[in-house]
């Protein structure tokens, strides 16, 4: 991204600085407009969700649309909370997400380090296999994973929920690309000074790759938190289920959905992730752009 915008002025036909500045400004107004449109497209559903969660029931379905609630009601939250044991689900989500994403990142960091810096036989083939794993849709492995977890006796346990997702092909790939772009001289110097692999990883590679690691960690957390199909399949009881499954309890199997409580439940489920993402999104951009551009 930076390279294209940086190179464009130099290939432009030569002109005086003043019109160029004006041209740039016009372009940026157009850009602002574009950004605003895109922003609205993304934010509108969020606004609708939040406002519906606090609107009186009738205003959710009213036509023409009632954009601003006439009064703020908390009734939907009370109903959602009553229908679903969200407190228990919240604890479960917290445990599964914490354990799952920590292990996932750890595994990704170690395997990426191996792929980037170690020499071992069959490295290319193994890496190709990892890339291949990126192409496999999750649903294909669902049943196989269920049988494996079943045979391990882990159905309806926290471990059963996060174990199959631990090996992250995407995380490994992203971190390996990032590691390869690091200056070799630093690592060589460290090696000459007698640093082993662990020390090189912890004191040199990781500090230099902070955006990439944070990106992988964040995506892992959000992924683990939002995951629905697998936790639903692998758990049976209320004691083991996670937040997104709570939303299923609010949906009608037959008939007309009560969107108020569903929206209130959705707000409860995504709020932590929304906050986390808002605080950490700059790392994600830096991490993804870093891995893509530098190679």
């Amino acid at each position: 991204m930076t390279t294209t915008t940086g190179s464009r002025p130099s290939t432009d036909t030569p002109s005086t600085p003043a019109p160029r500045a004006r041209k740039f400004r016009i372009r940026s107004v157009g850009g602002m407009l574009g950004l605003t449109v895109v922003g609205i497209v993304f934010l509108l559903p969020f606004y609708w969700m939040f406002s519906s969660a606090f609107k009186p029931e009738g205003e959710i379905y009213r036509w023409p649309l009632q954009w601003i609630p006439s009064t703020i009601v908390f009734d939907h939250f009370a109903r959602a909370w009553e229908a679903v044991p969200f407190a228990q689900f919240f604890v479960n989500s917290l445990i599964v997400t914490a354990a799952g994403s920590t292990l996932k990142v750890l595994l990704a960091v170690f395997s990426a380090y191996a792929f980037a810096f170690l020499r071992f036989p069959g490295k290319k083939i193994v890496f190709l296999a990892v890339l291949g794993a990126l192409m496999v849709p999750g649903h294909v492995t669902l049943l196989i994973n269920y049988m494996t977890i079943g045979n391990l006796g882990l159905i309806n346990t926290y471990a059963g929920i996060f174990l199959p997702g631990l090996a992250s092909a995407f995380g490994t790939f992203l971190l390996r690309q990032h590691f390869l772009a690091l200056p070799k001289e630093v690592l060589e110097a460290a090696e000459l000074d007698g640093c082993g692999h662990v020390r090189r990883l912890v004191y040199f590679v990781l500090p230099m790759s902070k955006p990439a690691v944070v990106t992988v960690a964040l995506i892992a957390v959000i992924d683990e938190w939002n995951d629905f199909i697998w936790p639903l399949l692998v758990t049976n009881t209320l004691q083991a289920r996670t937040l997104p499954i709570g939303l299923m309890f609010l949906k009608e199997t037959e008939g007309v959905d009560q969107w108020g409580p569903i929206m209130a439940g959705t707000v409860l489920v995504i709020l932590p992730m929304l906050l986390l993402f808002l605080f950490a999104q700059r790392y994600i951009v830096a991490g993804l752009a870093g891995a893509a551009v530098r190679r």
Binding site: G138, L143, A169, D223, D227, W230
Partner: peptide
């Protein structure tokens, strides 16, 4: 779609669900 290998959100796409159902039906 999730960036990881597993499907993440509530919105299971019709196609993959259909494919899974077919597999599940076959297994049954």
């Amino acid at each position: 779609m999730s960036l990881f290998t597993r499907q993440s959100a509530l919105t299971s796409s019709a196609l993959s669900r259909r494919r899974f159902l077919a597999i599940a039906g076959g297994v049954a």
